[in-house]
Simulated scan of single mutants.
Amino acid sequence: MAVMEICIIPIGSKETSVSKYVASASRILKDYDVKHELNPMGTVIEADPDKCFEIARKMQEEVFKAGSDRVYTVIKMDDRRDKNYHMEDKVKSVKSKL
C-alpha cells in the first residue's frame, strides 16, 4: 500500500482561484474505492502504487477538460513494504513524539 500526495496546478487560466479545477480533479476519486483526504495544498491518496498513478493521470486530464491550457503536477509517494500502515499512522507516529 502506498500513500501519495498530489498537487495539480492549472497554469494559463484566466482567474486566480483554482477551486473549480481542484473540484473537477477531485470528482475522479468517486470512481475509485480508495482512501483519500483533501488538504489545503493537495490531496492524499492511499492505494496500490499503480492505482495511484492511474488516478493521478485521470485527475490531471480533468483539469485540462475544465479549461486549463497547461497543468503542473507534483506527486510525492511513500511506498513502504516492510509493514502495513495507513496515512493516519504516519501522522500519529509524529504526534506521539511531540
Rank of each mutant, 00 (worst) to 15 (best):
E37F: 03
D78A: 15
V34C: 08
K35V: 15
V74Q: 08
M77Y: 02
K83W: 00
I28F: 13
S96W: 09
S96Q: 15
M1L: 08
K97N: 14
V71D: 11
A25P: 00
V91K: 14
D48N: 13
P40R: 09
R70D: 07
C7E: 15
A25L: 04
H36R: 01
K14E: 09
T73R: 05
D31R: 10
T43S: 11
A2K: 05
K76P: 07
P10Y: 03
Y72W: 12
M87A: 12
K97S: 14
I28Y: 13
S96L: 13
K14Q: 05
Y21V: 05
I55H: 02
Y85R: 14
D31Q: 10
E5I: 10
I75A: 13
V74M: 13
A47S: 11
K35C: 11
G12R: 08
S17F: 06
M87K: 15
G42E: 04
K58P: 06
Y21T: 02
E15C: 02
S24M: 11
G67V: 07
S19T: 15
Y21Q: 02
M4V: 11
P40W: 11
I6K: 10
L29E: 02
P40I: 09
R80K: 12
I55D: 03
K51P: 02
R81M: 05
C52D: 02
E5L: 06
R80Y: 06
R80W: 03
N84R: 12
T16A: 09
M87S: 14
M41V: 14
V44Q: 03
K76E: 15
Q60D: 02
R27M: 12
E46T: 03
D69M: 14
V74C: 07
K30P: 00
K83V: 02
I9Q: 12
Y72D: 10
K92F: 01
G42R: 10
R27P: 06
A66N: 06
I55R: 00
P49F: 04
V18R: 05
K83I: 00
V3Q: 04
H36A: 04
V74A: 07
V18K: 01
D48A: 11
K92M: 11
R27D: 13
E46Q: 14
V63R: 07
R57Y: 09
V44L: 05
Q60V: 03
V71N: 10
V63I: 11
T16Y: 03
M59P: 08
M59S: 05
K92L: 12
M41H: 05
M4S: 12
K35A: 15
A23V: 06
L29N: 01
Y21E: 04
Y72R: 09
V3N: 08
S96D: 13
T73N: 03
D69Y: 12
E5H: 04
G42L: 09
I6L: 14
T43G: 08
